[in-house]
Computed example of a mutant assay.
Amino acid sequence: MQVRLPRRPDRDAVLIAATGLLGGLLLWFLGLRNNPPLIGVPKWLTLVALAVMCGAELLRRNAPLTALAIGTVTIAADVCAGSLIATIAMYTDLLYAAVLYGRASVAWRLPRICEVLSVLVTLLAVALIREPEALLLGFGVAALIITPTWTGLGIRRHRDAARAARLEAERTALLAELDRRQAVGAERARMARELHDMVANNLSAIAIHSTAALSIDEPKASTQALTVIRENSVQGLAEMRRLIGLLRQAGGDEEPAATPRLDGVDALLDRARTAVSDDRFTFVLCDERGPEPLPAPVELAAYRIVQESLTNAVKHAAPGEVAVRLDFRAGRPLVVEVTSAVGAGPVPRAPGSGAGLVGMGERVALLDGEWEAGPVDGPDGKRWRVRAVLPVPEEGRGKP
């Protein structure tokens, strides 16, 4: 069984106890006692009360209620023995410490208890003495026990208020740091999506045609593959430069004016046709959008979804039709759907990281839309479908 040893008294307690002891001894030797001993109590008992009160002072911070209980018994004995002002002064400090360092329930009740005791002492003095001096005695007792308790209560209130303000400031700083980290994480995720969507298509085409150039020993085919590789390299470099320019802009939270738009989906289809050398692939676009323009965030998300879906089709789809459908009418959300034949080969034509589907899901989630990707039954067999439903807010319509 582990026994907890009491903590050492703090420096203030030792200083108060030492000062009270020296002052009390000086008053004793000078014969400056407050009143004569009552009912034959020996005078030397004041010295015992002085020493006990000094010991109680050492507990004022670590055990304030215990110190007050000891001090209350001691002050009664001191008054009966003649009373020293030093002992009384230390008792008022114990009252102050009990309110300041004691339990909250005691801190709130002790001043009221002292008020009641002051009234009772005053009434008792008036009943026994029946002189005007009895009122002065009651007022003196009230000043000695009420003043320190209310002083300690006021300081405790200010201390608790300062502690609460400090905790609130720390909480605010913590929330601000969490918000900053969340903002940094969101910006990094946005940069990762932009980087993946802009570069993945070009790199996929480069990987496919470089593989073809290495595996087919025909000068004409190699020349065509190298031409496609060069075009996609230049396009990828331009996209990288655009991303770097976007990152260097002062207003990082706003979409740049030169963001890709759905009017450029035809160019995406042309690049996808160029990326695959198999004539069995066909790329078609069904644009059912109305004349009303879309908000830039919605249009950018739709463009990136089409771009990533075409990139995945170039990598994984079986030969056949790759269809892109865009549907938007006023008062309805924008629907983006890309379907392709499910690939039968075990190895994709270009390696993938799996981040494309994650990025599409994140883009749709940021707009509170719906998104699904997976195989579905089609008229000509299994097809892979990517479908996104992007809400168009009323206040954002008509703002390109």
Rank of each mutant, 00 (worst) to 15 (best):
V284N: 01
D287G: 14
D287K: 04
R289I: 01
G290P: 10
G290F: 04
P291Q: 14
P291I: 11
P291L: 05
E292H: 01
E292R: 01
E292A: 12
E292P: 02
P293W: 03
P295V: 04
P295L: 06
P295N: 08
P297A: 06
V298W: 04
V298A: 04
E299S: 08
L300K: 02
L300F: 03
L300W: 07
Y303C: 06
Y303T: 01
Y303W: 13
R304Y: 00
R304F: 04
R304C: 05
V306M: 00
Q307M: 14
Q307N: 15
S309R: 04
S309Y: 07
L310F: 14
L310N: 00
N312V: 04
N312F: 05
V314E: 12
K315H: 12
K315L: 15
H316K: 09
A317Q: 05
A317F: 05
A317Y: 10
A318E: 10
A318Y: 09
G320S: 11
E321S: 07
E321L: 13
A323C: 04
A323P: 07
V324D: 08
D327R: 15
F328E: 06
R329D: 14
R329V: 02
A330N: 10
P333S: 15
V335I: 13
V336F: 01
V336D: 07
V336W: 00
T339N: 09
S340A: 03
S340L: 04
A341T: 15
V342N: 08
V342F: 01
A344I: 13
G345W: 08
V347I: 03
V347G: 02
V347H: 09
P348K: 09
P348C: 05
P348R: 05
P351S: 12
S353L: 10
A355I: 14
A355H: 11
G356Y: 00
L357Q: 05
V358A: 15
G359C: 07
M360I: 14
G361S: 15
G361T: 14
R363D: 06
R363N: 11
L367W: 09
L367N: 12
D368E: 11
G369P: 13
G369W: 02
W371G: 05
W371D: 09
E372R: 15
A373K: 07
G374A: 14
G374F: 02
P375V: 11
P375R: 06
V376H: 06
D377Q: 11
D377Y: 02
G378H: 00
G378R: 01
G378K: 02
P379R: 05
G381C: 01
K382Q: 14
W384I: 05
R385S: 10
R385P: 00
A388G: 09
A388Q: 03
P391N: 06
P391M: 09
V392G: 00
